[in-house]
Amino acid sequence: MGLGFIIGVFGVLILSHAAYSTIQYRGLLKIMEEEFSGPPMNVVLELLLGFVFCIWAALTVPGKFLSIHPDSEENRIVSLSANLDFMIFNHRAKAFPLEIDMKLKH
C-alpha cells in the first residue's frame, strides 16, 4: 500500500509538471511567433513516465485481482450449504444424545 501509493502521488505530480511545462512552452512559442506542432521531447518522456507510474499505482493500490473463472479455486463451488432453514431435528441425535456435560454457566 505505502510504496504504491507514494509512486502514484509521484506519478500525478510528474503528469502535472508535464502539463505545466507544455503550457510554458506554448507561451514561449507565442512570444517567438512560431506554430505549436507538439510538446518537446523531454516533456513527452516525462508524460510517458508519469503515465506508467500512475497505471502501476492504480493496478497495485486498490487490492488484489480476483479470479473471474468459474473453475478457479476461489469460485469453484464444491458443496452447497446445508439448507438450515428447513433443518429438522429427528435424526440419530435423538437416539444417541451427545455425551457432553457442559452447561451454560452464569
Partner: peptide, 15 residues
C-alpha cells in the same frame, strides 16, 4: 440451534 440439533435441550433452553 446447535444444541437443539444435538438434543441438548437444557443448553438450548438456557441460551
Amino acid at each position: 440451534i446447535a444444541a437443539m440439533d444435538c438434543q441438548c435441550l437444557d443448553v438450548a433452553k438456557d441460551c
